[in-house]
Write a protein that binds this DNA or RNA. Structure first.
Ligand SMILES: [Mn+2]
Ligand SMILES: [Mn+2]
Ligand SMILES: [Zn+2]
Ligand SMILES: [Zn+2]
Lengths: 146, 146
DNA sequence: CTAAAGCTGCAATTAAGTTGCATTTTATTT
DNA sequence: AAATAAAATGCAACTTAATTGCAGCTTTAG
């Protein structure tokens, strides 16, 4: 499930920001790198259990927070009030996310960068852009012909 | 604080969708119409108390849910895990929102409609677009010269 | 005026996320 | 190969937004 290359990548990313390499951080980061969709805390906890990673809930929260602080992972707010997390091999520019209203999964659409064509009203200082699309994902669409 | 015109507007909006006109719905809708920023549940509760509207927390939640279901109000997910609600006199098209990282207020930017220039990957069916910008609002910027 | 449908209040519950503190682990220095 | 300081972890308790079930009360149609 996890290749040598990927393991090395997680370590490299953590060392790049002068972070301590711990089993929890490695395990979490590998999952965020290898999973195609963004993971909620709960989904991460289940995935972690399957890979044999033992960690307290709180430690997972703290590992996720740390990865986001360091810019290694990013998080997307989802319509079920839970944050979802994803990491990429390369530093990613701001991009859109798609959340399926049926299965709640969140997909990174990295090719869909919000064009900064718009102009903000005067006085507003911009830090972050979050373009979130909602609808039906390909899997759900084909499943039940919604 | 609330004019005759506005009161009539709230009633009109509720009747347009064949909803029962109750003091709570009226009070909540008037607040959502008259407040410039989108209100969190907590902010609404405080505002309601000031206007003399008596209502249980749960009833406020239910009134908000109902207004959103009916398309009279819309809600925006905010970075503090609380939904924020706003209503407009006219039916509004999808637009961007700006949340200040300092005061957490959410502003509707109705003139900033996300151009639907982008193309979604094949298979994804689009229902809603949420473009949320984050940064510093004019008030916070001038206050502390951040 | 009456009745049914639909709201509301209250109490209990859910679920994501946070906090404080004692203990363990990591990475660095000797 | 220790010793050490700094940082990460586990555990228990806590916070807070939002939800649920149900009895009682309002609204509206007839
Ligand atoms: Mn992403
Ligand atoms: Mn808005
Ligand atoms: Zn789906
Ligand atoms: Zn502000």
């Amino acid at each position: 499930m996890k290749t040598d290359t990927e393991q090395t990548l997680a370590q490299k990313l953590i060392r790049q920001v002068n972070g301590r390499v711990t089993p929890i951080r490695l395990g979490v980061l590998e999952l965020l790198l290898n999973t195609q969709t963004a993971l909620s805390h709960q989904e991460l906890e289940q995935a972690a259990a399957q890979t044999g990673l033992v960690a307290d809930r709180v430690s997972l929260y703290r590992a996720l927070d740390w990865l986001v602080e360091q810019g290694i992972a990013h998080r997307i707010s989802s319509h079920d009030r839970a944050w979802r997390y994803k990491a990429q091999a390369e530093l990613t520019s701001p991009h859109a996310h798609f959340q399926c209203k049926h299965c709640s999964q969140v997909f990174c659409l990295e090719d869909l960068q919000p064009a900064l064509l718009f102009k903000l009203p005067p006085g507003y200082q911009l830090d972050e852009i979050e373009l979130k699309l909602q609808g039906t994902c390909p899997a759900c669409a084909s499943l039940n012909a919604i």
